[in-house]
Nucleic acid binder design. Structure first.
Lengths: 339, 339
DNA sequence: TTGTAAGCGTTATCAC
DNA sequence: GTGATAACGCTTACAA
């Protein structure tokens, strides 16, 4: 690990000149430059990034905190952010917050106490005032979920409209008793989707009964309980508020005649029988936008930016919703297989 | 952002004493300690981690480089490493290398030029000598893939035995013409799986014809081509060398009568009709072991450790292999649904 | 065009 | 027990 001083000694110049050459500053005599460059090569000089960071006061690192990096939705956000940041010479520290809200503050504080230049966060807790102290020091950008009790940039999806879209889709296919199944309603996105579901029912003058709402489907056992609960009220269709719940639900409804729509696509959703109609999200775009915003804020600390950006979502229509398909299930299976 | 000096001034002591109090060093007079502590509280002192890192010469950060963080297999490795490291006050910088081997060196060098304490890597390229310079400075641990032209610790799975197991399973179910389908054979794990497949055929005195091997199934189009290629030789079963290829393959073989076994489980593999028999991997364990090894090496730089650890894999038998199931496919479907 | 000096915040050394 | 001083490697003023 040669230092600048050692390179300087070898090239018979001062450390400052080495610094100038290394950072391509002008006003270095060509022959000096050449001598320094060969010394640089000879000693295989690599700058000590800790020292640079120390001097600069800020590391070229953006923190990314998401509930779970194993969830492809968040992994796509993280990867997109990493790609964009990497192109600007910044790297990305990823932290999985986990499902336990109690852990979030510790985990995120630990992340922040490193020397980050900025933070991208999809929070689990619903009070983000603990970030206020940090927000004055670095750009903090929320993705997928809005900041609460904190003023910060956010890029989120139109969960309400998406849920409305999916529910309306089921209504248009003739369903009248539509169940809502999700995991944890305290997550703001889930709450918005429930609101969208209810709004769609209201718009169609259908009864938004609480008995048709079941939660806790984040794991297979919970999904089974939730489904059993709903089935007492014999819905003909389900709106599933997130992809993970949908994945848990799929095995359970195989033998039933329930139509299903899911908020969030997932691999093989199109391979099920019947193929699942889903709300399509664009996590990569969220990640790219968030990272770009962090970089923009770093570039122009005094700049003015839109605080809240809501991205539209779309419906991917497959075959899981029609009442008719359920009545002739075996035909549909045949048709699927023939494709 | 109060510094130690400011705290020292307020407590009317030297910076060193503040440092002693903050780090719980002995030999501080109780009343001095108390005065310092109240100053610490009053100024809300938070140590500047950049300075500490600079002083120490090493950041409490472990790098994790994997081909793709969106792939749940690697995400599980990364999450497990993060969890273990986090418990020791270390954080984790994750980088997706991408599929392009040409990018790996740049990406990993960029990662390394930060001040890491160690590196966990699942490499894409097949010559790791570029890491030699770094290996002398920090522990480098390979996961899932072995180091080539470099001496380093590794935790890998028994790809050869796993592929042998899966192929033998198909043979035992009566299959005689078994195709191999994968993505890129230059990836060492894939090569080992091909070898395992061939060994199993040889052990059963079956012909390991090259015509039954098709590659490039990493995307849907490639999978279609690969499958078409294989079907010219009418195999009755396929051994699919990785989960991603299997996911691409599933839609294509729906209408066929091919039995399938996949190396690597994936969500909903048990929900397909017929449910897929797979080789089960344990990426979390790989990640945990790798992170633990990095920490162990940091703790005991002179310690001696096993260089190469091979983890066994297991077969999860589902229903996709029996010849009989294929002959009575519709019955099987009924049975599935009834479950 | 090049060099000198100072300092970023913390901690190790050694003296008191 | 406590404090002055130096040092980590680099860059920013400023001087030459």
């Amino acid at each position: 690990m040669a230092t600048m001083r050692e390179v300087a000694a070898l090239a018979r110049v001062s450390a400052k000149t080495v610094s100038r050459v290394f950072n391509n500053h002008p006003y270095v005599a060509p022959e000096t430059k050449e001598r320094v460059e060969s010394a640089l090569r000879e000693l295989n000089y690599v700058p000590n990034s800790i020292a640079t960071t120390f001097r600069t006061g800020r590391a070229p690192v953006i923190g990314v905190a998401v509930p779970d990096i194993v969830d492809p939705f968040f992994a796509l956000i993280a990867r997109a952010a990493e790609t964009l940041a990497g192109a600007q010479g910044m790297s990305v520290v990823i932290t999985s917050i986990g499902d336990d809200p109690a852990r979030e503050i510790d985990v995120v504080q630990a992340l922040l106490s490193q020397a980050l230049s900025g933070l991208i966060i999809a929070p689990v807790v619903s009070d983000h005032s603990y970030l206020a102290a940090w927000a004055s020091r670095m750009p903090i950008v929320f993705v997928d979920r809005q900041p609460i009790r904190l003023s910060a940039d956010s890029f989120i999806e139109d969960d309400l409209a998406g849920a409305h879209l999916a529910t309306t889709h089921l209504i248009e296919h003739g369903h009248r008793r539509i169940g809502f199944i999700g995991d944890d309603i305290s997550v703001p996105t889930a709450a918005a989707r429930l609101a969208g579901y209810r709004a769609a029912l209201a718009d169609a003058a259908l009864d938004p009964s609480d008995e048709l709402v079941a939660l806790g489907a984040g794991n297979r056992a919970g999904a089974a309980t939730a489904l059993a609960e709903l089935e007492r009220d014999s819905p003909s269709a389900l709106f599933c508020a997130d992809a993970r719940s949908a994945i848990n639900l799929v095995p359970l409804v195989r033998s039933s005649d329930l139509a299903i729509t899911s908020y969030g696509d997932f691999p093989l959703a199109d391979m099920l029988s019947p193929a699942l109609t889903v709300i399509d999200q664009d996590p990569s775009r969220l990640g790219t936008l968030a990272a770009q915003r962090v970089l923009d804020r770093l570039d122009r600390p005094k700049g003015r930016f839109r605080r809240r950006t809501v991205l539209p979502v779309t419906l991917i229509e497959r075959e899981s919703c029609a009442i008719t398909s359920r009545l002739t299930r075996s035909n549909v299976l045949q048709a699927n297989r023939a494709r």
